[in-house]
Design a protein around this nucleic acid. Structure first.
Length: 338
DNA sequence: AAAGAGGAATCGG
DNA sequence: CCGATTCCTCTTT
């Protein structure tokens, strides 16, 4: 098992919102590390002696990757158990990096005499995985920034930006409506709040929101100190004006928004995708979700596909979007393809 | 039932 | 003002 193979699991990891939370939130990184350590050890034992992975890997609750944190998510952890089984299955068959060590040592020695080397290898793997996972999460944050038209730095958010972020987070993690409890707060206010403050605002989901905000804050720090190349379009020194320049709060047109979504197939191909990119023909796969995303972007909580499609139809006579020659449900075409 | 077409009133930057 | 939203009726798939 090497870091790259682990990385290939990342798409599956992101499917689990709880682990997404656990990835970047400072103290939960530690729990991710302990989880990966257990996985690596399991793969190791499985290879050298045919020992099956410890049952703790399959019965997730014993693995404390959530720590004492987000208690309400233990329920989700149980629901997501199939994913864990999937991971153990995927890691066990392929474990090439441990070969060299395996050849020079008998299985028993692995545990006894080479634990130092083992720990070093583990540490290196874990470092790499952590870096890559963090990078992926930062990319997700970046995507959200573009989609919501907000800065990646919560400190610079206005009340409107805070509301957008809250709506987005609610949507992404299927939280009940909590944004109303954070009315009139700027990003600075939000950042100055402690976890206890969050919990006071929303007893049930305050901690989740706090964790999520923490991810964004961590991302911002990473960017500052580690000069991440994610925002290579603007300088490392992102001053207020720079941020506003890159995330202007200008009105966006629906057709632009749709193109934005189409440009991110990795994130949105499940709800909107090209049928023929050259001809500009695209299909809305999940009308409700696209409408919801549009509503979040425009701060229109009541947006639905009925209204969104009316807006698209306004483009007919403007010559921006039309129905393709052979009209099909939920399929549209940009008149001037990009 | 959901999607599609388009009229009409209204909203908001 | 203009583009988008909201609400509507009627038609099509």
């Amino acid at each position: 098992m090497n870091a790259f193979q682990l990385l290939s699991l990342y798409p599956r990891i992101t499917c689990v919102p709880t682990l997404y939370f656990s990835v970047l939130s400072n103290f939960l990184v530690i729990n991710l590390r302990s989880l990966l350590r257990t996985m690596i050890k399991a793969a190791w034992l499985d290879e050298t002696e045919g020992i099956k992975p410890p049952p703790t890997l399959v019965g997730l609750p014993e693995v404390s990757w959530f720590g004492p944190y987000i208690p309400c998510y233990n329920r989700l952890a149980v629901e997501e158990k199939p994913w864990v089984v999937e991971v153990t299955g995927a890691t066990a068959p392929a474990a090439p990096t441990s070969r060299t060590l395996e050849e020079s040592l008998t299985p028993n020695q692995v545990q006894d005499s080479s634990s130092k080397v083992e720990i070093q290898v583990e540490e290196r793997c874990l470092e790499q995985v952590q870096t890559m996972v963090v990078g992926e999460v930062l990319k997700d944050v970046d995507t959200a920034c573009k989609l919501l038209n907000i800065s990646p730095d919560p400190l610079t958010w206005s009340c409107v930006h805070v509301q957008k972020w809250l709506l987005w987070t609610e949507h992404l993690y299927k939280l009940p409506q909590v944004s109303t409890m954070f009315k009139e707060l700027t990003g600075k206010d939000l950042c100055s709040m402690t976890e206890a403050d969050f919990r006071q605002q929303s007893f049930q989901f305050g901690d989740v929101l706090y964790a999520h905000l923490d991810i964004w804050r961590s991302g911002k720090n990473k960017e500052d100190t580690g000069k991440s190349n994610l925002h290579h379009l603007h300088s490392v020194d992102d001053s207020w004006s720079d941020v506003m320049c890159n995330y202007p709060s200008q009105p966006i047109h629906l057709w632009q928004f749709l193109q934005e979504l189409l440009l991110k197939p990795h994130n949105y191909s499940c709800c909107i995708r090209w049928l023929n990119k050259e001809k500009g023909i695209f299909k809305i796969e999940d009308s409700a979700r696209v409408a919801r995303l549009w509503g979040i972007r425009k701060n229109r909580p009541a947006m639905n596909y009925d209204k969104l499609s009316r807006s698209i139809r306004q483009y007919y006579k403007k010559g921006i979007i039309r129905k393709p020659e052979v009209s099909r449900r939920l399929v549209y075409q940009f008149v001037n393809p990009v």
